[in-house]
Computed example of a mutant assay.
Amino acid sequence: MTAEMFPVTTPAAAEAEAKVITISEYGAQKAQSILAGSGKQDAGVRVFIKSGGCSGYQYGMAIDDRELEGDTIVYDRGVKLLVDQASLALLRGSEVDFVENLMGGGFTVNNPNATSSCGCGHSFRTDGATAPEGQGGSCGS
């Protein structure tokens, strides 16, 4: 019997594997700062998917102090992340991050389910197919 037959999983690795969505250390710092200034008690970051953008789907994020029926709630690095049931399949395994560049900064989603994305990084497709009918066009629309 080899070690490959019986992989060893540390508690930290098992916890990370169990989380359907995570947030980077820098993303968590930025989110905590924004949440602290929101004035909303027990608020979290709602991460969701909506139709639109040049690739078919767009990411959305909002500060939310409501927990809706069917929500998946994940606590990671001190931040509460809320994902609605419809968005969950498209976001599973994703990491929320915060990036800064010459154009400013903002939250982004590193999504292993995206098979393609547009240049702006706010729109993506999961199956290589064209955008849903009536969707598409310019980035961020």
Results as ranks from 00 to 15, higher is better:
residue 1 M to H: 01
residue 1 M to W: 00
residue 3 A to C: 11
residue 3 A to V: 05
residue 5 M to K: 09
residue 7 P to R: 03
residue 8 V to H: 14
residue 10 T to I: 06
residue 11 P to S: 15
residue 11 P to D: 10
residue 12 A to C: 04
residue 15 E to I: 02
residue 16 A to Q: 09
residue 16 A to T: 06
residue 17 E to P: 04
residue 17 E to N: 10
residue 17 E to Q: 13
residue 18 A to S: 05
residue 19 K to T: 07
residue 19 K to G: 06
residue 22 T to S: 08
residue 22 T to D: 08
residue 24 S to E: 14
residue 26 Y to A: 13
residue 27 G to D: 08
residue 28 A to K: 11
residue 28 A to N: 09
residue 32 Q to G: 13
residue 34 I to T: 10
residue 35 L to W: 05
residue 36 A to G: 11
residue 36 A to I: 03
residue 37 G to E: 12
residue 37 G to N: 10
residue 37 G to F: 01
residue 38 S to N: 04
residue 38 S to E: 15
residue 38 S to M: 14
residue 38 S to Y: 13
residue 39 G to T: 10
residue 39 G to R: 05
residue 40 K to L: 15
residue 40 K to Y: 14
residue 41 Q to E: 13
residue 42 D to H: 15
residue 42 D to Q: 14
residue 43 A to G: 11
residue 43 A to H: 08
residue 43 A to T: 10
residue 46 R to W: 03
residue 46 R to D: 12
residue 48 F to A: 06
residue 53 G to M: 01
residue 53 G to K: 00
residue 54 C to W: 00
residue 54 C to I: 00
residue 54 C to G: 05
residue 55 S to L: 04
residue 56 G to M: 00
residue 57 Y to E: 07
residue 58 Q to D: 01
residue 59 Y to D: 08
residue 60 G to K: 06
residue 61 M to S: 10
residue 63 I to M: 02
residue 64 D to P: 00
residue 65 D to I: 04
residue 66 R to H: 10
residue 69 E to A: 11
residue 70 G to I: 00
residue 72 T to N: 04
residue 72 T to F: 02
residue 73 I to A: 13
residue 75 Y to A: 13
residue 76 D to P: 04
residue 76 D to T: 02
residue 76 D to G: 06
residue 77 R to I: 07
residue 77 R to M: 12
residue 79 V to L: 09
residue 79 V to T: 10
residue 80 K to V: 12
residue 80 K to A: 09
residue 80 K to D: 05
residue 80 K to R: 05
residue 80 K to P: 04
residue 80 K to M: 08
residue 84 D to S: 12
residue 85 Q to A: 13
residue 86 A to Q: 11
residue 86 A to P: 03
residue 87 S to L: 06
residue 87 S to R: 01
residue 88 L to M: 07
residue 89 A to W: 06
residue 90 L to C: 03
residue 91 L to D: 00
residue 92 R to T: 13
residue 95 E to H: 03
residue 95 E to A: 14
residue 95 E to I: 02
residue 96 V to M: 06
residue 98 F to I: 04
residue 98 F to G: 06
residue 98 F to P: 02
residue 100 E to C: 09
residue 102 L to R: 08
residue 103 M to H: 06
residue 104 G to H: 04
residue 104 G to V: 02
residue 106 G to R: 07
residue 108 T to G: 01
residue 109 V to K: 02
residue 109 V to Y: 01
residue 112 P to N: 14
residue 112 P to Q: 09
residue 114 A to Y: 00
residue 114 A to M: 04
residue 116 S to C: 13
residue 116 S to M: 07
residue 116 S to V: 10
residue 121 G to S: 01
residue 122 H to F: 07
residue 123 S to A: 13
residue 126 T to Y: 13
residue 127 D to S: 08
residue 129 A to G: 14
residue 130 T to P: 07
residue 131 A to C: 12
residue 131 A to H: 01
residue 132 P to R: 10
residue 132 P to W: 03
residue 134 G to M: 14
residue 135 Q to D: 12
residue 136 G to V: 05
residue 136 G to T: 08
residue 136 G to M: 09
residue 137 G to K: 11
residue 137 G to P: 00
residue 137 G to D: 06
residue 139 C to V: 02
residue 141 S to H: 11
